[in-house]
């Protein structure tokens, strides 16, 4: 089939998503688009974390009836870290969105260039 290992493909995707997220953050002036960018970064990081824990031919680290000594598992630590990261990412996205709403209420706009009252 293909020469690339599965986890590499997934890593490329994850990093690609992170890059896409940052480009959204840097280029779009709409703060909601910036927040979308951050949530893309979060998803990308979760993908990278899982990809890094993948072991060739590995299955979920859940022992059940058909587990044998030869069974290869993927790294459970990465899975645990990814779950934590996803939850934290969601929490932070929520609070960022709340600030975006607050900004909109105060200014009537979502354009990031309008939010430069304190500087230098």
């Amino acid at each position: 089939m293909t020469a690339l290992p599965v986890s590499t493909v997934l890593m490329v995707t994850g990093f690609g998503l992170v890059l896409l997220g940052y480009s959204a953050i840097l280029i779009h002036r709409n703060i909601l688009k910036m927040v979308i960018g951050f949530s893309l970064v979060d998803s990308g990081i979760a993908i990278i974390v899982v990809a890094l824990g993948y072991v060739q031919g590995g299955t979920a680290p859940i022992l059940d009836a058909d587990t044998t000594a030869a069974t290869v598992f993927v790294d459970p630590i990465n899975a645990a870290l990814a779950v934590t990261a996803i939850v934290i990412g969601f929490a932070v996205t929520a609070i960022t969105l709340a600030y975006a709403i607050r900004l909109y209420r105060l200014h009537g706009t979502l354009n990031v260039d309008a939010f430069t009252e304190s500087r230098e």
Binding site: V18, V41, T96, Y99, L106, H107, E117
Partner: peptide, 20 residues
């Protein structure tokens, strides 16, 4: 205040990059 909410938003964006 307006500046305060703006500052908080900036703070969040920058620290999100850092924690990522």
């Amino acid at each position: 205040s307006r500046a305060g909410v703006q500052a908080a938003f900036k703070y969040i964006t920058a620290t999100m990059v850092a924690s990522a």
